[in-house]
Design a protein around this nucleic acid. Structure first.
Length: 357
DNA sequence: AAAACGGGGAC
DNA sequence: GTCCCAGTTTT
């Protein structure tokens, strides 16, 4: 695209954006920390979900200093149900770095900000362009889809080596005078008009520049690579009752669902009954002996790279002291106390079923 | 370069 | 059911 055309593209896009943008809470602030929080939450998470968390999180942790001084368990509780919990752990860790190494101020320098845990290319560009007018182009799923259609890019948007190509296009188009507005406008276009299915090209403010639209091939873009099939796992967990308490355990801080709480359990093996699997797994993971377990419910849950079904057993504590194999902590708690701990969503499903039933 | 990492809205 | 979302880190 010629430079003169690029200038017109920017004007058309930003004019449309200013007239049509959604009223979102993180658009009402210029506070860099608040903008940062919103960008971390919005990573791979839909706007509608983040709306339920953003303002409550900032009420709990109004400044980067407040966040840095908060207990990680409280931060995870605020994140409970949103997924990708490493974001919360990284944000919490990064807040401490901002406090100790950057005098409590978010670094404005690209390299410094990028070095914070959880700050990748996207977050760095998004925060620094919005908060400090740095001319850095964001490249997210929306932007890639828009660019794919705009320039008829045949590289799959979910392939690793496409990123450089998309980043170059994004940088070329970026309005260096209004980088924050431009970035938001590109994403807003992708979110509301240039959608994955059935793009609304009739009302698109830049359709006159869109190569795929001009050829009526917008439905052929973006190109995506095929995904692999996802495996399925069958798990058992147990509600172990000891007097009026039940046992919960805390997952390691790294890896899947890191730092969250759950009922003890594990994967059932082939040719193993649920009852024997339950007893074996409880002994192996907690060192406890339990009375014969009895199944009380079953839940299904899907992650992005595998799916699970969990058979839930009730059992009575028989013998032994807790000695954890993989988990990092445990508690004997009342049912009501489950609200005080951050559980992952599969367990919220379990608790909801047992409470209703 | 590929896999790990959550959960749910939209279709 | 499938797709994919204001991506980053680890392997």
């Amino acid at each position: 695209m010629k430079q003169s055309q690029i200038t017109v593209f920017r004007d058309q896009l930003i004019t449309w954006f200013e007239a049509n943008k959604r009223d979102l809470p993180w658009r009402r602030t210029d506070d860099p920390y608040s903008i940062w929080v919103s960008e971390v939450m919005l990573q791979q998470t839909q706007v509608k979900i983040v709306l339920d968390y953003y303002e409550r999180f900032l009420e709990s942790f109004p400044t980067v200093i407040d966040l840095s001084q908060a207990d990680l368990q409280l931060v995870l509780k605020s994140w409970e149900g949103m997924g990708y919990y490493a974001r919360a752990r990284n944000l919490h860790q990064a807040s401490g770095i901002v406090r100790d190494k950057f005098d409590g101020q978010l670094p404005r320098d690209q390299g410094s900000f990028r070095s914070l845990p959880g700050a990748g290319e996207y977050i760095t560009a998004a925060v620094l362009s919005r908060a400090f007018d740095k001319p850095l182009a964001v490249v997210d799923g929306n932007v890639k889809r828009v660019l794919s259609r705009l320039f008829m890019i045949d590289e799959p948007i979910n392939s690793a080596n496409a990123n450089r190509q998309f980043a170059e296009h994004a940088s070329t188009m970026l309005d260096p005078q209004r980088p924050g507005q431009f970035n938001e406008a590109m994403m807003e276009l992708g979110a509301t008009i240039c959608t994955p299915k059935n793009p609304n090209c009739k009302i698109c403010p830049v359709s006159n520049f869109c190569e795929s639209y001009i050829q009526d091939r917008q439905r052929d873009y973006p190109v995506t690579a095929i995904r692999k099939a996802i495996p399925h796992h069958h798990l058992v967990v147990s509600v172990i009752c000891k007097d009026d308490k039940i046992l919960i355990v805390r997952r390691p801080l790294s890896g899947l669902l890191g730092g969250l709480w759950e009922l003890p359990g594990g994967e059932i093996e082939k040719n193993e009954t649920g009852i024997s699997a339950c007893s074996r797994i409880i002994k192996d993971s907690t060192n406890l002996d339990i009375e014969t377990p009895e199944q009380i419910t079953r839940v299904k849950h899907a992650y992005s790279h595998f799916s699970i079904e969990i058979d839930v057993y009730r059992s009575r504590y028989k013998l032994g002291d807790v000695y954890l194999k993989d988990h990092i902590d445990y508690r004997w708690i009342n049912w009501a106390e489950t609200d005080d701990y951050a559980f992952h969503q599969a367990h919220r499903k379990i608790f909801n079923k047992l409470t209703k039933g």
